[in-house]
């Protein structure tokens, strides 16, 4: 559905993105991970047509994304990192505005706005203004605004920043519903547990390049574990046995490496600006 091929983008002499390629299929959620300054936001900007690549191309269902009023942009929904709503317009009015920008009008527009509100559980708040919403409700409406025109591809840039666990869970359910409906989703986040739970595949970027990609199992295999042996144990590991192993210098892990282990292994532990 979404295919990005060899994307390059520089600002001055600094290459923000250098040769990124990725593809997202229908009904798939691809996580885009990377430390600050890795080039994720620039990549997302090129994927949705906000920034033109210096080199490379983006297509949606074979249709190139390019130019301000490119028709292919109708097939993309963008969920921005900030809550980007007109706080003094009602929830329904926000949705109808964004729907109108994508060419919807009349009964179809109202119907699509209602459906998007229902999907995120805000149908009862259609008239209310976002200014009176909680942080979680605003985030859900933020997603609904990206869905009102029923896009094939949804780009989500850290959509759960600052929300409580209940709202995060509700957002995850919404995204899983969209995946089940065949949408292609690109999910940018710093939260590894979110990527582990949601994403079918993960792309890790650093210094403007893709440094790893694959499903969780494939990524875990990238973490070297010298001296480690994989044991399968049947029955309980009681405390006495664990104490004896510890006394002999053996470390016991209940699972394999976490995604966070993989991420830190690949991108390093140094702080990024």
């Amino acid at each position: 559905m979404l295919v990005a091929t060899d994307l390059w983008k520089s600002y001055g002499t600094k290459a923000a993105v250098a040769g990124v390629s990725l593809a997202v299929e229908k009904g798939e959620i691809v996580g885009l991970l990377g430390p600050n300054g890795a080039g994720k936001s620039t990549t997302v900007a090129m994927l949705c047509g906000l920034a033109g690549p210096d080199r490379g191309s983006v297509t949606i269902g074979g249709e190139p994304v390019g130019g301000e009023a490119s028709p292919a942009k109708r097939r993309i929904g963008l969920v921005t990192q900030e809550v980007s709503l007109f706080e003094d317009l009602g929830a329904q009015a926000n949705l109808e505005l964004f729907g109108a920008l994508y060419g919807l009008e009349g009964a179809a527009l109202r119907e699509r706005a209602g459906a998007a509100l229902a999907l995120v559980g805000l149908a009862e708040h259609a008239k209310a203004k976002p200014a009176a919403f909680s942080g979680g409700m605003k985030r859900r409406l933020n997603i609904a605004c990206a869905l009102v025109h029923d896009p094939d591809v949804l780009l989500l840039d850290e959509p759960t920043v600052g929300v409580d666990p209940q709202s995060r869970n509700a957002i995850f359910r919404n995204l899983e519903t969209l995946r089940a409906r065949g949408k292609a989703l690109v999910y940018t986040t710093h939260y590894m547990e979110e990527a582990e739970r949601l994403c079918d595949r993960i792309v890790i970027m650093d210094h403007g390049r893709v440094i790893a990609s694959g499903d969780r199992a494939a990524l875990r295999r990238l973490v070297p574990a010298p001296g480690a042996r994989r044991l399968e144990i049947e029955g309980d590991l009681d405390d006495a046995l664990l104490a004896m192993l510890a006394a002999r210098g053996v470390t016991v892990r209940g699972t394999g490496a976490t995604l966070e282990d993989v991420f830190l292994h690949l991108t390093g532990r140094a702080l990024r600006d």
Partner: peptide
């Protein structure tokens, strides 16, 4: 612009002139 609203408007298939 600060709130990303401008980004969201620009993500729509509308021209700069519009």
């Amino acid at each position: 612009r600060r709130m990303d609203l401008w980004k969201r408007l620009r993500a729509a298939p509308v021209s700069r002139a519009l």
